[in-house]
Design a protein around this nucleic acid. Structure first.
Length: 261
DNA sequence: ATGGTAGTAGAACTA
């Protein structure tokens, strides 16, 4: 099983990037964040034409998540609770066979002293509560998405100057590892132990060409999924293209052996 | 230290 994640920064604008990428890499699951489209306008047809199913929850202009899958997902839910309209555009989950897929777009936080940053911490606490309520850690579960957390100094290009940022500070890291302590492991880092690999590069300053990035997109798995994982990597090519225009994030991919029956 | 870019909009806002 191949699972990928991509913050598209508008799924409609990014179709010329996503569709060829899907045909080339054929993941079983592509988790998309920042779709920036309300559900009635989601571009379902281009995906069905190449054999993919879509599950999504979005809104105009901001946020929005989708799961693009080769097989239709079962038990699709958006948000933390049934009928959770407030958090739906940031969280979508479903089951593919025996594997649970959770796709999250964690709030960025804007500024450390803003209510948006407080909301980010609260969102992660609610996420942890959802895990405890609805899952057990010995299930095969993937948690992926734009988590807006760079957990380690090696996950940012300049840890000294960026220390204290809403996506890189000790308070956030502690909370992130508290959530992970429920039962998630870093699948990407298991296979890529060396520094200098990033999934997000600011549009401003040609940062991708200087490798001045952040690893804030993640593929995490419970122990069963970690043990089944065979490889993980970041594909920089879709970030470096000029035409069609790139997202400011790029794809992270992980491969897994099938679950034993 | 500030501002740099892109998307959605059709002026700011979010990142």
């Amino acid at each position: 099983m191949r699972i990928a994640t991509f913050n598209a920064n508008s799924i409609r604008t990014r179709l010329p990037v996503i569709l060829p990428w899907l045909l080339e890499h054929r993941p079983d699951v592509l988790a998309v964040q920042e779709t920036k489209v309300q559900d009635s306008d989601f571009p379902v047809d281009p995906f069905t034409e190449i054999g993919y199913s879509c599950a999504f929850k979005g809104q105009k202009s901001y946020n929005g998540v989708a799961l693009i899958t080769r097989e239709p997902l079962a038990e699709i839910r958006t948000g933390f609770f049934p009928d959770d309209t407030q958090n739906g555009p940031r969280l979508i989950r479903g089951r593919m066979g025996d594997v649970w897929i959770i796709n999250a777009y964690v709030p960025q936080g804007r500024d450390r002293d803003s209510e948006h940053y407080a909301g980010k911490l609260e969102w992660l606490n609610q996420f942890r509560a959802m895990l405890e309520r609805e899952y057990v850690p010995d299930q095969p579960i993937i948690w992926t998405g734009d988590l807006n957390v760079a957990p380690e100094p090696m996950d940012v290009h300049d840890p000294k100057s960026l220390d204290g940022h809403v996506c890189f500070n000790s308070e956030l890291t502690a909370l992130f590892y508290e959530v992970c302590a429920w039962g998630f492991h870093d699948v990407f880092r298991r296979h890529r132990p060396d520094p200098g690999e990033y999934s997000y590069f600011d549009y401003r300053g040609a940062t991708v060409y200087k490798n001045k990035g952040w690893r804030i997109d993640h593929i995490l798995g419970t122990r069963r999924m970690l043990d089944l994982s065979t490889d993980a990597w970041i594909d920089l090519k879709p970030r470096k293209i000029r035409d069609p225009k790139p997202s400011d994030h790029t794809f992270m991919i992980a491969d897994f052996q099938n679950l034993p029956r």
